[in-house]
Amino acid sequence: MTPPLIEARQISKRFGALTALNAVDLTIRSGEVLALLGDNGAGKSTFIKVLSGAHPASDGEILVDGRPVHFASPQDAAEAGIATIFQELALSENLSIAENVFLGREMTRNVLGVPFLKRRAMKRQVTGLLDELDAHISDPEAPVGSLSGGQRQAVAICRALNLDARLVIMDEPTAALAVAETRKVLQLVRRLADSGRAVILISHNMHDVFEVADRIAVFRRGRKIAERERRATDPEEIVSFITGAHPDVRALEMQS
């Protein structure tokens, strides 16, 4: 059997005396959407920061395609095919869609050592990506500042696709969106997974999670306390895990 795309083994993260992550095991396979749920401070964000190279883990190891890797920076993670879309999206509103998608890794033609932009080639590629996502954005030269929240998510996803990302991590992609926009972004998430990529989705919205996720992992106080196939669970059970009302959680927390 082929190894999973990403395997996190016994990942711990301590900030001084505070243990933000405690021996978390998690695997992610290509083509699936994994939702991370949990209260604020449960460790979800810390976990994705470790995966995306923003924080080094204090303990444990990460395997990509079964091989251990070390990420010193988000660029390292990007090289390994892990792209993170942060909540604030990190787009430059004064630049166009195409410029944002290619920011920092522009297609260029070197003239005397000066990297001149290949505008037409970049525009063509971004048009292709937007079509692939069915994002309904007609002009890749439009400034990002003129786009809606959902369209900006689409641009951020385009950027991840353009990196040939095999794992796309999305932090609360629908938090600030209207209903119709949320629909659209969830469709984008599904399409990413159907195209053979893996997606990790952080969300507080149970409805969104049950609509799009294949598997659900619940974090609580720095531990992964539960992992369920979506088909084998329901929102009530997940909520009881998050709040700590579930008998399993109680038993676990009595021990420690």
């Binding site: 004064n94 630049l95 920011l103 001149f116």
Partner: peptide, 17 residues
């Protein structure tokens, strides 16, 4: 027309991104 120019506008506007 160069990548450097785009970078100046990018970090001039939104340094974090």
């Amino acid at each position: 027309y160069t990548a450097w120019g785009r970078w100046i506008y990018a970090f001039g506007f939104n340094e974090r991104s």
